[in-house]
Design a protein around this nucleic acid. Structure first.
Lengths: 291, 291
DNA sequence: CCGTGTTACGTATTGCGTAACTATA
DNA sequence: TATAGTTACGCAATACGTAACACGG
């Protein structure tokens, strides 16, 4: 097997067209360098250079090794640098699962900052139901996931993200109190609601001991679809404030914060305890915690 | 600098996903292999793999090194093989100068055989005047040249190729003796001749002490042009028999051997004594001498 | 002879195997 | 307790420097 050290020696000699000068560049004495070239020739079973008068001249094999060898050394240098970057978490792929499209928006800002600082990191988001996302973690397809409680605290490490209020998105015709900027579950109870599955559980729990039954007209896990449905006038969409990047530029739409702590949703970033985090993921989490 | 031996170790371990199995494949014991991987990690400053339970698992940096490292090792293997071939003279470039297009035809058969046997060798022909060709040899642009005597026997090694008769190519109208298959300089003397520069010297020498003066209508160094001129009926082209690959498929053309030993031309392959021949050139010469 | 590259030899480093140890399922 | 990987140590091979040699302009 070719030895890169000797290859490097040879290429330096070929560049300098002189063993003595090459030895200086390599911070070594001339005789062992000369010897190493001979050894390299023996190892390859090939003449690489020979003295012609006082100078040195490459054979055709030597010329080929000179050209291609340079490329190989170069590609190895690039590879080494890449490895360092990946190791430092400043390059590579960061895969994040998010429990339905409800999750991703909470990270959009941090992703943006991280990308600006480490443009060599590629993000990959996997949207799915919460239980599927957990299995993606288990299969190590994703490094991190954004989920909503409850989840098993024994299996996962987690960071709780800032709580996020729900907002109610509706056409004006559904707005029974146009002067108020907020609303409540009680106010909303009799009007048609468009909610996601998680919120359905919330509401069911919330109204458990009450006589009021919410009027759920549609359950959908995709925020954009929910907003579209709201826009058609089907009902009132309850979505996390952070997910409200799709603002319909129409006067006819009304956005109200649902004014009740229990209505806030509580995204968590989780990852498996039993596996060591990738370095990129680690670096990303540090960024999040620094905020 | 990355060490290819260790890289090879690492890749084997990564392929096997086991140090023990890899050690078997590498015909070594397991502990030093494990140790070398650790050393490699230290040299790179990067974690490549870690135990997870009883098994081993690549880090993302390790996965990258696995992929790219394989490619690098592969390209090095290919390079090594190529170097062997070039060294054996079974691959590479063989540059041959030929003193005008008169030269190349003498080698066409050998070139063809050589190419069939060693298809990785590329031939490059350089056609020019004899003195230019000699300077191409001196500049080491070409390895070998085909020339015609005289040349300096002290500077060049040479192989004399079989002597080659001239043939006279003419339209029927110039054929004064249709029954004879050969002709002579005397017969041709009064008819218009199309010859090359070398032949001009020959003829001048030949007729030096004679009263006959040859009727030279055109001097041209390119065989194909000479044949074309003959075909137009301008005169009689004198060309080496070997160069007669351009046969005009017309009944109106006549081809006659010039029947006189002195009219034979005498191609030589020459190369510089003071430089060592390239291995391809050497191999090619061996082929020629074997015939 | 001066500036090349080569040969010869002693020393420090590296790399392997064996043996003892550690950890996980 | 069996089967993986790790640590410890001694010996053999390798690569370097120094010194002496060879050769061409």
């Amino acid at each position: 097997m070719l030895d890169l050290k000797k290859l490097h020696y040879f290429i330096t000699v070929a560049n300098e067209a002189s063993v003595t000068n090459a030895a200086k560049k390599l911070n070594m004495t001339q005789p062992p360098l000369s010897h190493q070239i001979k050894v390299l020739e023996k190892e390859l079973g090939v003449e690489l250079m020979h003295k012609v008068g006082r100078n040195i001249e490459l054979t055709s094999a030597g010329a080929i090794l000179h050209e291609q060898g340079k490329e190989i050394l170069e590609s190895i240098n690039i590879l080494e640098k890449k490895l360092q970057d990946v190791h430092n978490g400043t390059a590579g792929i960061l895969s994040i699962g998010s429990a339905t499209s409800w999750g991703a928006p909470f990270l959009s800002e941090q992703v943006s900052i991280f990308n600006e600082r480490y443009p060599q990191v590629q993000f990959r988001f996997y949207d799915d139901m919460q239980h599927s996302i957990l299995s993606l973690l288990e299969k190590r397809v994703v490094d991190l996931s954004i989920v909503f409680p409850p989840f098993n605290h024994k299996l996962y490490n987690y960071i709780a993200m800032p709580k996020e209020p729900l907002i109610a998105v509706m056409r004006k015709k559904w707005d029974t109190a146009p002067l108020k900027k907020t609303t409540t579950f009680e106010e909303l109870a009799d009007r048609p609601l468009i909610i996601n599955m998680k919120a359905e559980e919330h509401l069911t729990a919330y109204y458990k001991n009450s006589e009021i039954k919410p009027n759920i007209v549609c359950v959908h896990d995709d925020v954009r679809s929910m907003l579209l449905l709201a826009k058609t006038g089907l009902g009132i969409a309850l979505i996390p404030k952070a997910a409200n990047w799709v603002k319909y530029e129409e006067n006819d739409m009304v956005y109200k914060i649902v004014d009740r702590p229990t209505s806030q949703i509580n995204p968590h970033i989780i990852w498996l305890k039993k596996y060591k985090l990738s370095n990129v993921a680690d670096k990303f989490l540090k960024l999040i915690m620094a905020e």
